[in-house]
């Protein structure tokens, strides 16, 4: 169980910190160049409008209220 806990802790840690870091000398495994169709969502994803909509939804539904 100790191992399980520790591993789980690592996962939790990784998740909690995801998105927290700015820039560092991490090694990335460079993916290939995507060869598929362009997803229309790409235009929308990350836009302030969609982000604020998703943000509002997150706090409204997934919190204890």
């Amino acid at each position: 169980m100790q191992t399980g806990k520790r591993l789980f802790g690592v996962v939790v840690l990784a998740l909690s910190l995801a998105g927290c870091f700015e820039e560092a000398s991490f090694e990335f495994h460079e993916p290939g160049v995507y060869k598929g169709k362009t997803d229309p969502l790409l235009k929308k994803a990350g836009t302030p409008e969609l982000e604020s909509q998703l943000q509002a939804r997150l706090t409204r539904i997934q919190t204890d209220r």
Binding site: A18, G19, C20, L54, Q55, R57, L58, Q62
Partner: peptide, 8 residues
């Protein structure tokens, strides 16, 4: 599920 910052 959602923005990682808010989730954490």
């Amino acid at each position: 599920a959602g923005d990682g910052d808010t989730v954490s």
